[in-house]
């Protein structure tokens, strides 16, 4: 068994953990919820896995399960981005009223 490609994936995984830690620092508290919502939309990336379950040569049950996964992941992705954008839109309107113009 050649473990090299697998280790490469683990390598990416480990680096992404540190990157994730570093990305979040000194976030103003009013941005906590939009940030949570925005990264929630990113976790909808599981759509990629769901789509790949729909390969035409797979057993019908796997495709059925995959189909439900596609619908749910898509709700997470589209809903997540739209709701985050709405949150941030309100945020901007509030600022426009202020001295920032």
């Amino acid at each position: 068994m050649d473990y090299a490609p697998l280790l490469l994936l683990l390598f990416a995984f480990t680096l992404a953990i540190f990157l994730g830690f570093e990305l979040i620092s000194k976030v103003p508290s009013q941005l906590h919820t939009p940030l949570m919502s925005g990264s929630n939309a990113i976790s909808g990336i599981t759509i990629v896995g769901a789509l790949l379950a729909l390969s035409e040569w797979e057993p019908a049950l796997a495709k059925g399960v995959g189909f439900v996964a596609v619908v749910l992941a898509m709700i997470n992705v589209v809903g997540g981005y739209v709701v985050t954008d709405r949150m941030l839109g309100m945020f901007k309107k509030k600022e426009k009223g202020g001295p920032q113009g």
Partner: peptide, 29 residues
């Protein structure tokens, strides 16, 4: 984390990286 783990099943790098980013940044948040 769940998405990243799913990425390990199908060995998909974008699932692993994006899922892991959300997992790590989510914990910090």
């Amino acid at each position: 984390v769940a998405a990243a783990l799913a990425g390990f099943i199908i060995l998909n790098n974008v699932l692993v990286v994006a899922g892991c980013l959300v997992g790590a940044s989510g914990i910090i948040l």
